[in-house]
Design a protein around this nucleic acid. Structure first.
Length: 435
DNA sequence: TAGCCTTTGAAGCGA
DNA sequence: TCGCTTCAAAGGCTA
């Protein structure tokens, strides 16, 4: 497993996956990623994925430059000309490039100076400094700092963390992703498009409302307010920006990214009986989160949101049971129904497995891939995402491994007795029948 | 309408 | 310990 600290960690991925990146040079990785959308789209559009293809014609130099040799994307090299032709065709129509300027490439922190005098990052500079490589990662003193910054960019893909560009992008954000905008304005979001809900929302919900629009650009100290210049408390190295709260302590922990000492986790403990002991503040962000993670009928109206009792995304209330109960109201009151209802009530809510690193990555990038191409089938999208996952640099992958690790840690804290076996056995019966 | 497809990673389980 | 299996998300597709 790759580790942020270089070894001995728990679960940052397979070493064999990352070894190949060590000698390939991340610069090529970045460059390849820049064009990965076109190639991915071309691949998918031409033939989705033909796993049976061989590497007989894989001697393309340009291809070798863009892709790590160990990752023999066998299907990629076949009919390269046709793929390029397909890409050209799509380039003129279907493929329009990333709809979000600088995203996801902006996720790559760069300490060079592609920024405009006002601190913003010119679109051209974004591309250029993206292609210039990632050697500046070393400028970050700690991986956690890096993750925190990247997290800000992940949380709001449309939000240019560079100070000064916020207004120019506000229109775009408002039009396509209300999350940054409404958080900025502290207004209640009206509609949260599922595709633009940040996939890491489950994590964010534990620390939402803390990322104000003036998040410092990566090249600025994270603890300085880019607007006011007021230094902010640095991120405590021992507290995760994603899971800083633990039962009983969350109320006293000011979020490291919080502003002017604002309590980030206002905790109300009264009457909380949910498996999640840490009462989560329900606000605009949470409302959006609920809308995206739960069926509409499960999402209470915003005005009824309470500061407690918010289910964790991992908890799936048996909606079918609820619907069936509602449909039976006033119709049947047989004892059989009542018995089954009691049994259902006794059943524990379905606690889902915590998402792994790739799942987190998929959730984040799915909307982008869908936006770049017209594909909507998850099977095809996942193929693209799987390849992009392998194309990620170690740092980028480590970011998701770290998120997944924290997700599991939180999951363990919230559900001490939960085991993957609980869900495993439920579907095992079905699988035995179907497979 | 349930299940499949497709991806990676975590976890469980049996040998 | 190793290898296999299941599940997590997602949405179109299929029987």
């Amino acid at each position: 497993m790759p580790q942020l600290n270089g070894g001995g960690g728990d679960d940052l991925g397979a070493n064999d996956e990352l070894i190949s990146f060590k000698d390939e040079g991340e610069q090529e990785e970045k460059s390849s990623e820049n064009s990965s959308a076109e190639r991915d789209l071309a691949d998918v559009k031409s033939s989705l994925v033909n796993e049976s293809e061989t590497n007989q014609n894989s001697s393309s130099d340009s291809e070798a430059e863009r892709r790590p040799p160990p990752r023999s994307e066998s299907f990629r090299d076949k009919s390269r000309e046709s793929l390029e032709e397909a890409a050209k065709r799509q380039d003129g129509g279907l493929f329009k490039g990333p709809p979000y300027p600088g995203y996801p490439f902006i996720m790559i922190p760069d300490l060079t100076s592609p920024y405009l005098p006002n601190g913003s990052l010119s679109p051209t500079a974004r591309t250029l400094h993206f292609q210039s490589g990632s050697t500046h990662y070393s400028a970050y003193k700690t991986i956690e700092h890096q993750i925190a910054i990247q997290y800000l960019q992940m949380k709001w893909p449309l939000l240019d963390v560079q100070a000064g560009t916020l207004q120019s992008r506000q229109a775009l954000k408002d039009a396509r992703s209300p999350s940054p905008a409404h958080i900025v304005s502290n207004k209640v979001p009206v509609v949260q498009h599922p595709h633009h809900v940040h996939p890491l929302t489950p994590l964010i919900t534990y620390s939402n409302e803390h990322f104000t629009p003036g998040n410092p650009p990566p090249h600025l100290p994270a603890d300085v307010d880019p607007k006011t210049g007021i230094p902010r408390p640095p991120h405590p190295p021992d507290i995760s920006p994603y899971y800083p709260l633990s039962p009983g302590t969350v109320g006293q922990i000011p979020h490291p990214l919080g502003w002017q000492g604002q309590p980030v986790y206002p905790i109300t403990t009264g009457g909380f009986r949910h498996p999640y002991p840490t009462a989560l503040t329900v606000n605009a962000s949470m409302s959006s989160f609920l809308s995206s993670r739960f069926p509409p009928h499960m999402v209470p109206p915003h005005h009824t949101l309470h500061t407690t009792g918010i289910p964790h995304p991992a908890i799936v209330t048996p909606t079918v049971k609820q619907e069936s109960s509602q449909s039976d109201v006033g119709s049947l009151h047989s004892s059989k129904h009542q018995d089954s209802k009691k049994e259902e009530e006794k059943k524990k809510p379905h606690i889902k497995k915590p998402l792994n690193a790739f799942m987190l990555y998929m959730k984040e990038m799915r909307a982008k891939v869908v936006a770049e191409c017209t594909l909507k089938e998850s099977a095809a999208i996942n193929q693209i995402l799987g390849r992009r996952w392998h194309a990620l640099s170690r740092e980028e992958q480590a970011k998701y491994y770290e998120l997944a690790r924290k997700e599991r840690q939180l999951h363990m804290q919230l559900y001490p007795g939960w085991s993957a076996r609980d869900n495993y056995e439920k579907k095992k019966v079905r699988s035995l029948h179907t497979r």
